[in-house]
């Protein structure tokens, strides 16, 4: 059976080129280390991030002299003391944290049934419809979507127009905390669904049928079988939504009406409004620490194995 060379998978050709290049560069061969060569781009990328972090760390230890707008040539913890003592920063951190947790919970609650129906529906039409409905806003982008909500929820927006028909005075639906959270949930929903769908696909339908035949009602099958088995997906989706919400900038900026700053907005102000890169760096590190602690807590509570990172699993 003769096959034309072009019928080889393209990835084989890529690997051939890589191997040839490697052999030319290092004729002796790298032995068992050769496969790790593939990690080079990732290591370079992470390395760059680390270097950036070192710079930010250095900046965070220098205070701005507002009579010369130069940073101190010595290190000091003043920025950290300021970050921990300024009530505004506490307000913003608490608002971001609480918001991220609420958004995560609500998003997961909405994403789960969405993903479940998308994965389980026997109708390919319904599945395609759900996928398109999911991806369309994905392509539109966060800022445009936020402006869309301004139009829909504004005092002269569609929602208030409809309320006006039944005699309700225009309501201020925008520029408050719920509006920001609402916008975030809508923004995060596709992330949640996309992270959950593979986890749900991995649960055989036969398992649910088995649960039913063993006497479990639909609700009990969900709570006792599907939810526990979907845990890796729920944790993964939760992590993504939590960290993205915690660090979000656009929704608080646009839907918050300037009254609902999250940490990222406070950082932006320090870097670009008051020219204080030192304090801005401090807040940035604070945000990184906060995110890392949250992820750490989740791993500690649920275990890294819930993400199927546990090598011992078959």
């Amino acid at each position: 059976m003769q096959r034309s060379p072009s019928s080889y998978p393209i990835i084989w050709r890529v690997m051939d080129v890589l191997e040839t290049t490697f052999a030319a560069v290092w004729p002796k061969g790298g032995g068992k280390f050769t496969p790790y060569l593939m990690l080079t781009p990732a290591i370079v990328l992470v390395g760059t991030l680390v270097v950036g972090l070192l710079y930010i760390g250095d900046s965070s230890l220098r205070v701005l002299d507002r009579s010369t707008f130069l940073f101190s040539d010595y290190w000091t913890l003043d920025n950290y003391i300021r970050a921990l003592s300024e009530p505004f920063i506490f307000t913003v951190v608490w608002r971001s944290l609480l918001g991220a947790v609420i958004v995560t919970i609500v998003t997961l609650m909405l994403a789960f049934p969405y993903a479940y129906i998308m994965v389980r529906t026997p109708s390919s039409f319904v599945r395609k419809f759900l996928l398109i409905a999911l991806f369309l806003p994905f392509f539109i982008g966060q800022v445009v979507r936020a402006y869309g909500w301004l139009i829909i929820l504004g005092n002269q927006g569609i929602v208030n127009d409809v309320l006006g028909l039944v005699g309700v005075e225009p309501l201020r639906l925008l520029f408050n905390y719920p509006a920001v959270l609402f916008g975030l949930v809508q923004y995060m929903l596709p992330f949640g669904v996309l992270m959950l769908a593979p986890a749900l696909t991995a649960i055989p339908e036969e398992i649910e049928a088995a649960s039913g035949s063993l006497g479990a009602s639909w609700v009990k099958t969900m709570t006792h079988i599907v939810l526990p088995m979907a845990k890796p997906g729920l944790i993964g989706a939760g992590l993504v939504v939590l960290t993205l919400s915690l660090t979000d900038f656009a929704m608080p900026a646009i839907l918050g009406g300037g009254t609902q700053d999250f940490i990222a907005n406070a950082i932006y102000d320090q870097f670009f409004r008051t020219s204080d890169q030192g304090f801005g760096s401090t807040l940035a590190l604070l945000l990184i620490a906060l995110g890392s602690i949250l992820v750490g807590i989740i791993f500690a509570v649920f275990g890294a194995g819930t993400l199927a990172l546990d090598g011992s699993r078959k």
Binding site: E206, I207, G212, S213, L214, A216, S217, M229
Partner: peptide, 28 residues
């Protein structure tokens, strides 16, 4: 199915991976 008195052994067994053997058997 859950109202019928029918026990079923599935083609791929459909055991619950997040439970022990005893928990699987206790489930019904």
């Amino acid at each position: 199915p859950n109202k019928r008195s029918v026990g079923m052994v599935f083609q791929k067994l459909a055991l619950f991976p997040h439970m022990t053997a005893a928990q699987n058997v206790a489930f019904p």
